[in-house]
Write a protein that binds this DNA or RNA. Structure first.
Lengths: 204, 204
DNA sequence: GTCTATATAAGGATAGAC
DNA sequence: GTCTATCCTTATATAGAC
């Protein structure tokens, strides 16, 4: 098998992956049939199995590709020794937001359909997410120790950073009214302001 | 049919609803079979149909029950004429958080599985959510007009308020480390502080 | 590598005895 | 109201011709 044959196969496989990811997002993993994927790729369902091993493999590819990209980005921030923790958090937050703006299919499938992974991938995937959240919590604690993030329970702050981006799913349906830049800056502003060490919030 | 027979039927139906909602959350709507529900209720699958019309009816009940509860609570806040918009938003946010803490099964099913509703319920459900988000945006704009919420794009702020609570899903798996009260106050603090009209955030 | 045909399992829902 | 038995559809995946 020469190189061009290999490349063609990879292109085909990548097309299947792209179609499948979109359908998994639109209809859900369990409600998406191999026939649905095959229809949009333009072949019969049986032909898909010349390129992939199973439907589950497509889900694995999506989930671990995203997990890898997110983990690598976080590692970059962790190693920016000259940066403040708050700056690292803002960079991570902006990475999350841009992923949800530019790669919505993949992040939604990884977020919502990941629970349908089979073992041992399910366990590995959930452990990886747990580690990821711990690492973000660690940056938050560093920021508090250095005094440029206000003292508070770090766990809810981490959850907020992890979850804020989810609203972007709604934004995609009405993209015209608010620009991607305004959306990103607006979200970042709420969160980062909420972390500043300024004792100015008085309950009524 | 006397009153006690009616009540017994409703109790049974309510039990089926409760079991189904939990399974829909744990396994997803499509991956939950009538046989799964029946097993936990303690009857055969066929017997369920003496109490409910279809599996889809259980999903409808969950989604619209939640939509109704949320809409009514928002209406209460809208009619608190003496309150500041920021106070209304905090009350709404706390209602969301408590729902995600105390009724996680139902809110998760309504949020994640609602897309599997059949027509015309799907359209009605999505329109209702759209209206709900518009109403929250309206309160935010009121707060800006009155000067007790900082001027900014209202749309990302609304998304943040809608989405912050989603992290609570993770909290339920490790309930011991942070109390429900600390979680609620921690989440509220980040968001509400991020809305205050204090020009103290300078980008580096 | 793609096709047709099919194996095998599971799904929601119904019929009819009790 | 609950049961057993079953209808009918759909699902993933495989076999084997071309």
């Amino acid at each position: 098998m020469n190189r061009s044959a290999n490349q063609k196969m990879n292109i085909r496989k990548e097309e299947i992956y792209r179609v499948a990811t979109r359908l998994f997002r639109e209809k859900g993993y369990n409600a998406t049939g191999m026939r649905d994927i095959a229809l949009e790729v333009g072949v019969e369902a049986a032909s898909l199995y010349n390129h992939i091993r199973s439907k589950s493999e497509l889900l694995q590819q999506c989930c671990f590709r995203m997990a890898g990209d997110f983990s690598r980005q976080l590692e970059e921030q962790e190693q920016r020794n000259s940066a403040l923790a708050l700056e690292k958090l803002e960079a991570v937050l902006r990475f999350h937001i841009r992923a949800w703006i530019n790669r919505l299919d993949e992040v939604l499938v990884a977020t919502h359909e990941g629970k349908y992974l089979e073992e041992p991938w399910l366990t590995e995937f959930m452990q990886e997410r747990r580690r990821y959240m711990k690492r973000i919590e660690h940056i938050i604690i560093q920021g508090m120790d250095h005094g440029h993030i206000r003292r508070a329970e770090p766990y809810p702050i981490m959850l907020t950073i992890m979850s804020t981006v989810r609203g972007i799913e709604f934004w995609h349906r009405k993209q015209q009214e608010v620009s991607a830049t305004d959306l990103e800056d607006g979200l970042v502003d709420v969160i980062i302001r909420g972390l500043l060490p300024i004792p100015s919030y008085h309950r009524s």
